[in-house]
Design a protein around this nucleic acid. Structure first.
Lengths: 224, 224
DNA sequence: CCAATACTCCAATCTTCTTTAGAATGTTAG
DNA sequence: CTAACATTCTAAAGAAGATTGGAGTATTGG
């Protein structure tokens, strides 16, 4: 009887460990962050994470076995998506804990933000209010399909790649707030740096949709 | 420049992975759960988790390197404790995600609860209100020092080991609600089963203090 | 100062994970 | 039906983690 108690406990902890094991490889975390931006086929995931398709497939298999992602076939492609918002929330929580506890991570992030943040450190609700009033322009610099899958309210899609050509669309009299996939994504940093260099009042906003939503704020997605 | 982007990302994800790696071994998770009950020396942690002291020490080192736990020396003993409540919250979140996603885990937990829960599935706030009114007796069946480190409001300490001798202290006209370290701990299950067998109206409550606190409810700790 | 206690560190073994290469599978276009 | 494509499966090498035994370190009691 004493012994079965240990066996039950071991089994319970082993189950939770499946989640932990799935979330303890940097590449898998990156894949999860990508999947927070919407469903994607393996090829695109592999390209974005800069790994081979084989390796991406192997990592995705691990995630699928932990029931963190699921698949859908569409023609030749297999689209992967998170099994629920709770997975994205957990990723946000995990990153938050890391940022809270690991000085090295905080330092690295501060270094990224040091040029981009100097104009104004904006609160989420404040940004939402100002965007609604049209006092700032919120710019989603991710690829168009990620914007379509879900974006901040009042945001305008302008993928980083098209930024140069479409500069004329942006106002010079208002601050431009650029965001992308989240604090680990460099697209908004790059966009803001470029815009400032071009004479715009541009700042980077660290959140991605997953962070925004995890904090209880609304996310808009295009009707399909 | 393209390349440094990848290097920065790899470094950021690698940092978060330190947290993930720390939380992906069943024994380390068990140690964290134990530390959620208050600080403890290595010897006690090893005994509770039923592993050798050397192994416990090795696992604790991992946790310390991820800055999830810290130490304090008191005489011959080295006490370990969580570096903050956010660690306990994360453990609760991780277990919740596992329970949400892994059918096997849910099934195993349901099996544990099947006898213990049949009287009434109690909500947290409801329990708190009833405990305050004295309509139920809330019983903390953990060792006394864990009770002292923090317990539910209005709870009474009666360690599982002393339950048999101290049965007379319990009322037979009111429901007794037993809790312990959390859903993975079997002490409250055992206590409730024993009490029901002795003719008490006893149920098990799944939360431990970490779960209770993570849901925003107050925890009481003895002044030292 | 010595012995005992409570740990930690180091080194060795065994297992488990990561990554890549090559073969196999399922789907669509023609 | 066949070719082309997207993806998975299988197998294997190398890297990293788990566990144990033996030695070493800090602290207390005598």
């Amino acid at each position: 009887m004493k012994n079965t108690g240990r066996q039950v406990k071991d089994a319970l902890y082993a189950q939770v460990t499946r989640i932990g094991k799935a979330m303890c490889s940097p590449k898998r975390l990156e894949l999860i962050e990508l999947l927070c931006q919407g469903e994607k086929p393996v090829e695109r995931l592999a390209a974005e994470a800069e790994i081979s398709m084989k390796l991406a497939s192997a990592h995705l298999k691990e995630l699928r076995q932990a029931h963190l992602v699921e698949t859908r076939r569409e023609g030749k492609n297999i689209f992967y998506r998170l099994t629920g918002e709770s997975v994205a929330d957990f990723w946000v929580a995990m990153r938050a804990l890391a940022e809270d506890r690991l000085l090295e991570l905080r330092a690295a992030l501060a270094k990224l933000a040091e040029h981009a943040h100097e104009l104004m450190p904006m609160e989420r609700e404040e940004l939402l209010a100002q965007a609604e009033q049209g006092e700032v322009v919120v710019l989603d610099v991710r690829p168009g399909n990620e914007f379509a899958a879900g974006h901040l309210p009042f945001a305008r899609s302008l993928p980083l790649e098209e930024l140069q050509q479409r500069l004329a669309e942006l106002p010079r009299d208002k601050p431009v707030v650029a965001y992308c996939r989240g604090p680990f994504c460099l697209m908004a940093v790059e966009a803001a740096a470029f815009l400032r260099q071009q004479g715009f009042r541009a700042i980077r906003f660290e959140d991605g949709v997953a962070e925004w939503r995890a904090h209880g704020l609304p996310v808009v997605s295009e009707a399909t």
